[in-house]
Design a binder for these strands. Structure first.
Lengths: 148, 148
DNA sequence: TCGATTTACATAGGTTTCCTATGTAAAGTG
DNA sequence: CACTTTACATAGGAAACCTATGTAAATCGA
């Protein structure tokens, strides 16, 4: 098997990522709000703008998503004691349960298909996730935030 | 570092894939038709329904995308000598050039960000692509279509 | 302390990317 | 040669985004 160039691999990565997203969405993701639940689960309560920045979307988009999630009962908006302009978005128990459900489904889809490939291990999956994460990291060229 | 479970990794894969897709689209992908150009480049001329199956989208969606691509001059629809109902979609020279342009851009975005990570190699990128491909493979376990 | 700027959201309006349902015409089938 | 299937096109609509802009709270300077 010939070794494809890094450039070919790079564009393949985005093409296949796009297909995966559509596959999962059609299969069982009830809304784009899944990402939001995932963020809240990792970080705890956040304000809308902070959520939008983390998810790399516009603030109005995040407002809409949070509203949908709130209607579904998966998050609540509670007053921010430190700032009356904003509210903190909290993940509810139902939201946590929903997140678990979605994760099981997409995990099932991914790991089931991966299991058929004896040449690909969980380690390889971890590598794939690390690569995607690395690509998604913002550009900290001259001003690293130096968190310690 | 603790080793995350295969399930966690599986759901992470889709979440990050979704973010990557949005990142690339915002950055420079002029349309969803990129995938179609990519398929035609790999396979040669195809009819609409075949394209839709390969790209895992509905036939009307593919009809629309091919029309857009044809308007842009990146593909042409030519009569199928073997079947008057369908036409074969051909990639034009301009289409091939556009595909090259897009690939350069997304490859630049990916490899540039990846280059900052000394712990991730081109091999790891290849692994990531292989994992995504594996997940996207249809399920042909018991009923291979036996194309020969 | 009070006007001026900034910040955090909400709302309005529009685009892109998909889908299902359905109609039409060519291709196979008994 | 009717009858079903196949390949597309069209109609209509939903979902996930965006930019521009308005409102109210927070902050800042004189």
């Amino acid at each position: 098997m010939s070794t494809p160039s890094a450039d070919d691999l790079s564009s393949d990565l985005t093409v296949y990522a796009a297909r995966l997203v559509r596959l999962v969405r059609r299969e069982h993701a009830p809304s784009a709000g899944t990402r939001v639940l995932s963020i809240l689960d990792e970080t705890g309560p956040l304000a809308i703008t902070a959520l939008a920045q983390i998810d790399r979307c516009s603030q109005p988009t995040m407002t809409g998503q949070v509203n949908q999630l709130a209607e579904a009962g998966w998050v609540t908006k509670e007053p921010n004691p430190a700032d009356a302009r904003s509210s903190l978005v909290h993940l509810t128990e139902a939201g946590r349960a929903e997140l678990g459900r979605i994760r099981q489904l997409s995990a099932g889809l991914v790991s089931e298909r991966l299991a058929r490939r004896t040449d690909l291990s969980t380690d390889d999956l971890a590598t794939a996730v690390a690569v995607l994460q690395a690509v998604l990291e913002p550009s900290p060229p001259t001003t690293p935030e130096g968190h310690s």
